[in-house]
């Protein structure tokens, strides 16, 4: 465990909590893509099946349970408690365009052709693209609430910190995981355009709106 990894995990947790706090306090999930949140729940559910098979550490176990719980609470908020505020008309990304290639790729490129490993691989590939419905929704409406942009910033920062973690681990432990690394790079690239807007607009006190 290195400093990049722990900061990455905390940044991920902070992103999830920011989103929940936003919905809780405003009693609204406007501007949030329910589809992206369903994909993230699917990512956690397929990746953390190992909770039933292996014990890695108490830290690992607790964090996995927290991520899973938070992601299901988020879905309950969007499609249950706050469904009247859900902006369905602008959440129009076609999930099959992501799911079909991701399922195909996980069958083609994996470490082992066994169910748990295929599900892990699927979750890694899916996570790389799971934010696209949210980014698509922002480009549909042309704007995002500032709190939503903080959520996206910490979610992107998490993956960027994981890249630093992998470089660190390669140099110190000779550890590498090419599936995670390549997907992580792709995932981080999706945030670059957003990072630029976040730094040039949101941090200067302006609302994020697209030209």
């Amino acid at each position: 465990m290195n400093v990049f990894r722990i900061l990455g995990d905390l940044s991920h947790l902070l992103a999830i909590l920011i989103l929940l706090a936003k919905m809780w306090r405003s009693k609204s999930c406007a501007g949030i893509s329910g589809k992206s949140q369903v994909l993230f729940a699917l990512v956690f559910s397929t990746r953390y099946l190992d909770l039933f098979f292996v014990f890695i550490s108490l830290y690992n176990l607790v964090m996995k349970v927290i991520y899973l719980l938070c992601s299901y609470i988020t879905i309950y908020m969007i499609y249950g408690k706050l469904r009247k505020t859900y902006d369905r008309e602008n959440d129009t990304f076609r999930l099959e365009f992501l799911l079909i290639p991701v399922i195909g790729l996980s069958f083609l490129e994996n470490y082992d052709f066994i169910p748990t490993e295929l599900l892990w691989t699927f979750s890694i590939y899916l996570e790389a693209v799971a934010i696209l419905p949210q980014l698509f929704m922002i480009s549909n409406t042309g704007e995002a609430e500032t709190i939503t942009t903080h959520y996206l910033f910490f979610l992107g920062l998490y993956r960027a910190l994981y890249l630093a973690n992998w470089i660190w681990r390669y140099h110190t432990e000779k550890f590498y995981d090419q599936i995670a690394i390549i997907s992580g790079v792709v995932q981080t690239i999706f945030y670059c355009d957003f990072f630029y807007l976040y730094i040039t607009k949101v941090l200067k006190g302006k609302k994020l709106s697209l030209p």
Binding site: R47, Y162, D177, I179
Partner: peptide, 10 residues
């Protein structure tokens, strides 16, 4: 070294 199959990251 082969990539680890116990995935210890989150």
């Amino acid at each position: 070294q082969e990539p680890s199959k116990t995935h210890d990251e989150l």
